[in-house]
């Protein structure tokens, strides 16, 4: 029978730095689902999300020596996952104005907004809008952080979020 040992975040980090596999597994288990979800929401593809999760956690374990405890470990891992995810879809992302964006994803939603409708609407957003919307509205990054991660200006980040919300409003018009 496997014994579960309680470890603080600091102990987990130090265990990981010593390449303690148990600590690494604890760290992975703690964040795997949230990070897999983030990877899926940015990439829009479950298979690609698996690849992102794998690559991101390898970066986490190999780069943990650079973690300075200036933020929470979760926030640090989230940045790595978001960066990894964006690097996988970067070629597909076009930060185009809303007016010229594709309108073929318009969906007529029902009268009640449930999470399934909202999730579908978010995933129907163009990659550029979706990435910025997820990072800011769902994951809580600031425009400055998003701009730095995506290599865009803060202004572009703000306009992408505005257009993303506008598009979401259209998709969810019947509910809101």
């Amino acid at each position: 029978m496997q014994q579960t040992i309680r470890m603080t975040e600091s102990e987990i980090v130090h265990g990981c730095l010593k390449e303690d596999r148990y600590a690494q597994k604890l760290l992975y288990d703690k964040y795997k689902d949230a990070m897999f979800t983030l990877a899926y929401r940015i990439s829009g593809d479950f298979l690609l999300a698996e690849e992102i999760l794998h690559d991101a956690f390898l970066k986490v374990f190999r780069g943990l020596g650079g973690f300075r405890f200036e933020s929470t470990l979760g926030a640090w891992i989230k940045i790595i996952v978001a960066r990894t995810a964006y690097s996988k879809i970067k070629k597909k992302v076009v930060f185009e104005p809303f007016e010229t964006a594709s309108h073929d994803q318009s969906v007529h939603w029902g009268n009640s907004l449930d999470t399934e409708y909202l999730e579908n609407a978010i995933m129907a957003l163009p990659e550029g809008y979706r990435t910025v919307f997820i990072m800011i509205e769902v994951e809580g990054f600031s425009h400055r952080e998003v701009a730095e991660m995506l290599g865009i200006s803060e202004g572009t980040s703000k306009s992408q979020l505005f257009h993303a919300k506008k598009k979401l409003r259209i998709l969810l018009a019947e509910y809101l």
């Binding site: 992975y28 795997k32 979800t37 479950f46 999300a49 794998h54 999470t115 978010i122």
Partner: peptide, 12 residues
């Protein structure tokens, strides 16, 4: 309230 997806075991 958005759903959270479970990471497949194969990833670990």
């Amino acid at each position: 309230n958005l759903p959270v997806y479970n990471a497949p075991e194969t990833v670990w």
